[in-house]
Structures are given as C-alpha cells and as structure tokens.
Design a protein around this nucleic acid. Structure first.
Lengths: 155, 155
DNA sequence: CTAATATGAATGAAGG
DNA sequence: CCTTCATTCATATTAG
C-alpha cells in the first residue's frame, strides 16, 4: 500500500473554491484532531443538527485549524447522527441479546444485531433538552442573540 | 455464550508477548474458511448487496461456524463489492492500455498492473444479467425488496 | 526481522 | 432520514 511517513498531511479545501490550482489532487477533507474535538464537543453539547447559520459559524471556527467548507461540516454532522443512531441500535440489541441469553430469535424482526466490538466505545449520553455544560473552549457561539446558545434545533 | 471469536494467534509461537495483558486488543473478525466459503458462494450467486433481512440471515448462518456480527457481514459484502469493482477497473484500464500501444509509454508508475499475483486472480465474470445458479448447498434465500435475486442492481 | 500484500473496519461524500 | 460508493486506516498474514 501507500503508507507515507507523513500521515495527516492532507490538505482539504472546500469544493466551492474554484480557484485551486495549487492542489490538483482532490483529497477528501480530513479533519484535524482539533477540528474533530470541536465537532464532537458541539455534537455532545446537544447540537446534533445545526441550522445553516450555525453550520457557517462552526465552519469558521474550524477554519482556524485547517481548511474546511460548509459542506464538510454539514456532512460531518449528518454522518455523525446516522452513525450514533446505528451504534445505539446495535448496542441495545447486543445488550438485549445478552440479557435474553435464550435462543429466542425473532423470525421476522431482525433486532438481533449482535456484533462484538473490539473496544468499548460507549457514548450513550447526549444531553438533549438541557444544554449540558461541556467544559469546552468553544463557548462563544453567541453573536447577535442574547442567548448563550442553548437551543434545541430541529429542521 | 460466545465470548469472542478466538483470535487464533497463528502468527508465531514466539513468546514475544506484545505487551498484552488486559489490553482490549481489538481483534478484528477473522472469518473461518467455512464462513468465507458461504460468503463467497452467496456473493457468486448474485447476491452482492444483501438487504438487511438477508444480512441477518446470513449472519445466523455464519454464526454456526464462529462468532460474527451483522456488521461484519455488512462490511464483508461492502468490501467485496468495492474490491471487485476496482479490480475490474484496473484490469480494464490495463487492457485498454495494452490495446492502445501506440508507442505511448507510460512513464508514470504502474498503478494498473504490475504486480504479479501468485494465483490466477481471474474473477472477472460477475455473471449478472443472467442469474447463474450455482450449486451451493446454502441456497435458501428469499428475495427482498431492493435486490437479492436475479435483478440488476441499481445505480 | 522487515517489507509487501490481503482484508476488516472507519469515514467522507453523495444519491435517493 | 436512509443507503451506498469510494477512499483511507489498521492489522493479520505471507513473502523475502
């Protein structure tokens, strides 16, 4: 394979940028660790589906650590949501199956999602409803509104 | 019940313990030969993208030979599809290049075909269009909505 | 032991 | 929201 000695040296640019001649190789955006931290913090803060304006704000925040476009942020949240839900279902199914411990299998329903994960990556909290105070440095979302940014969004 | 799929450390009997005591050493799923046979049979039967229900059924089938989760089956088919496609594209490109042969030497590195495969890696059939009925002992599947039978897949 | 390869798993991007 | 494709990462296996 191709394993460079310099990993994570991929520079991604927003697909909207047409004036991009210095980087002919279109590499898909690879979020930097700091960006991932920010995104996860936001997600765990309850903002799982940021509206357009917030997406832009988040993008600007992330841009300080590397090139990123609005679409990237949008995709990230979308995938994150989907992934979390999937995770949840599998986890629940596994748990139920473990508790069941009996050969009762639903011939119709396929709720039995038994998948043995290698590492315990439990992330089953999501303080919705109440804006959980994450000790994150990214608490600067307020701009025009007087609110601190504890809002439940839904589109 | 099934604790884990028995990693079967067949690497080396060397006592060189790689610092493994209570580490969750993410042992990735290693399909048993029988499982691989089943999966390949199904794949070659035309089921290249089993729907969820079928995936569960396949998983149950495989579980008789070793611990496996739905996600593993899902990943297996996904990777299989991707690999088959890529392989074909590369072979096609190589073929086209061979036909060209208009003195146009490709000074670039050989990404298409340069590696000598130890075994005859000819798997370019993918007899879609006509559902080839392989004589497998495990053919007991019912078609679902998306695909699963003798139908050309979408996209 | 090191290098190359095969393959399971994760994720960004896009389609429907 | 859901599934699917393509690319990439990580690791097990095998060749040198």
């Amino acid at each position: 394979m191709d394993q460079e000695g310099s990993p994570q040296s991929r520079q991604g640019r927003s697909p909207s940028a047409t004036s991009n001649s210095t980087e002919p190789v279109r590499t898909r955006w690879s979020p930097k660790p700091e960006q991932i931290l920010i995104l996860e913090s936001i997600f765990n803060s309850g903002i799982v589906n940021p509206p357009k304006d917030e997406t832009v704000r988040i993008r600007k925040m992330l841009e300080k650590f590397g090139a990123v476009g609005d679409a990237n942020v949008f995709y990230w949240f979308q995938n994150r949501r989907s992934r979390s839900r999937r995770r949840q279902r599998q986890l629940q199914a596994a748990n139920a199956a473990a508790i069941a411990t009996r050969g009762v299998e639903d011939p119709q329903h396929m709720t039995t999602m038994s998948m043995h994960h290698p590492y315990s990556n439990n992330e089953i909290d999501l303080g919705f409803g109440s804006c959980s105070n994450s000790s994150s440095f990214l608490l600067g979302l307020s701009s025009s509104s007087t609110n601190g940014g504890c809002e439940s969004n839904n589109s």
